[in-house]
Amino acid sequence: MSLTGAAATATEPSLVEPVVRVSSLTKRYGAFAAIEDVTFSLDRGTVTGFLGPNGAGKSTTLRLLLGLAEPTTGEAHVFGRRYRALDEPARRVGAVLESNDFDPGRSGPNHLRALALAAEIPPGRVEEVLQLVELARAADRRVRTYSLGMRQRLGLAGALLGDPELLVLDEPANGLDPAGVHWLRTFLRRFADQGGTVLIASHVLAEVAQTVDQVMIIDRGRLVATARLDELAGRGETLENTYLKLTVREAS
């Protein structure tokens, strides 16, 4: 099966530095390789779905990309540098890796204020991002009382504080109701149309299929395919078929 797309752009000569460039990224825990030799790059203005079964290595890849974990070998660069070497990371990259990374005893606005202080973002921005994620009215309570959907929105608000150019989201639609999912899609589309770049990890194909320009499929730690959705459609394949062919072996 020959799939082209995002990975191919890394090998073509380009004058524009890709927003994300991951090369031969490997993370081993003892003998177990969580991801192995993962290579891809993301161009400005694209929305990329990062798909794979649970435990395939999506979250590991994102943690390595964002400097939370160190790779065993290989490199992960955002805007041409390691994440940990970025000067004002919150103004370049916004990320949500878990849907519940809050102190339950702290209010949503205070959670955001603490992040804004650390990133030297004016405090007025907190109110702006709360309105942006449509959380402004309900937010001024302890996060303990938030629904899962509200927590997703609060997490996204935190990622948007610095008005970043790249959004990295892990399962962002988890817990959102249908209206929330629709809102998220519209939001991400608009973000990309204005030149932003989005990387969404998900194991829910339907969540992604309507939002993304291209997909990367990872299985058992290895990137098994990258493809533009319009190319798949041109070959008469659906995302679901492609995904299942590549990731389900034991079904035969």
């Binding site: 994440y83 970025l86 990371p89 919150a90 990374d101 339950p104 992040l115 990133a119």
Partner: peptide, 18 residues
């Protein structure tokens, strides 16, 4: 330890990777 327990260490380190 509260940051590790509640996961806020992730947003904390994303904003301040140093």
């Amino acid at each position: 330890t509260g940051e590790f327990r509640h996961g806020t260490i992730r947003p904390t380190f994303l904003v301040t990777p140093r």
